[in-house]
Design a protein around this nucleic acid. Structure first.
Length: 224
DNA sequence: GACCAGGCACATC
DNA sequence: GATGTGCATGGT
């Protein structure tokens, strides 16, 4: 990957200055974060929060209870998160993975190396690269940069990535250029999503976008 | 009513 | 390896 344009660390500073800390996964711990990572697939987080609240209220937000609950009941409780039948199956798939591989212990799971755990997670039904990396970073504080649709869209639009860059290419782009710290990756990803939500949807509203402003200051003639 | 959201699996070419 | 489709609720 060629080095194109400004240092992504400077972009981080510009976004952080504009938006401040994003406080992602606030208060979420252990299994709750993992459930959240699966439920939020292609879904607004506000809808996930409703589903998590229902699981909590029903006392099901634990490894033990999630293991016991029937898939149909699980699906009905997570209805608000969309694709609920699929996601109930995915949650169950994760639970059997956790049981089969680590005897149901998240703590044991967390002792795996990044490479081994990522590969195993990717083999679980319903866990793709973004969900695997979200679990690694947000649930286990592993040093993994999470890429999402906004990351690809925004950084391709501004010429940092080519227009058809893959997930892995994008991840490499950031991890080769950023300090290797979980806290930093966490905040950076959240800031990208924040920027995307407010300014870079499929129909961009670039006016006032702090990234756009920053890049215009940095380099002239940026295509946008 | 259309568009979108913190994706993924599976089929097909 | 690229592209298309199903999955589904809830906010704007």
């Amino acid at each position: 990957m060629k080095n194109r344009g400004p240092d992504p660390r400077a972009i981080y500073r510009a976004l952080y200055k504009a938006f401040g800390p994003q406080h992602w996964w606030p208060g979420g711990v252990g299994i709750e974060m993992i459930v959240g990572a699966i439920l939020t697939q292609n879904t607004a987080w506000s809808n996930v929060e409703k589903a998590i609240a229902k699981l909590k209220k029903s006392g099901l937000l634990s490894v033990k209870r999630l293991r016991e609950v029937r898939t149909a009941r699980l699906a009905s409780l997570i209805r608000s998160s969309g694709y609920f039948n699929q996601k109930a199956i995915k949650l169950k798939a994760f639970l059997s993975f956790l049981d089969g591989e680590y005897g149901g212990s998240l703590e044991r799971m967390g002792r795996e190396t990044i490479r081994a755990l990522r590969e195993k997670l990717l083999s679980v039904h319903g866990i793709g690269p973004e969900t695997a990396d979200s679990i690694l970073l947000y649930a286990f504080e592993k040093r993994v940069f999470v890429v999402d649709a906004y990351t690809l869209r925004i950084f391709a639009r501004h010429g940092f990535l080519h227009s058809r860059a893959s997930y892995d290419e994008a991840q490499r782009f950031f991890m080769e250029r950023l300090p290797s710290r979980a806290r930093y990756y966490n905040e950076y990803h959240a800031l990208i999503v924040r920027t995307g939500k407010e300014y870079c949807r499929k129909k961009p509203r670039c006016g006032g976008c702090p990234l756009n402003r920053f890049l215009r200051r940095e380099i002239r003639g940026v295509k946008h």
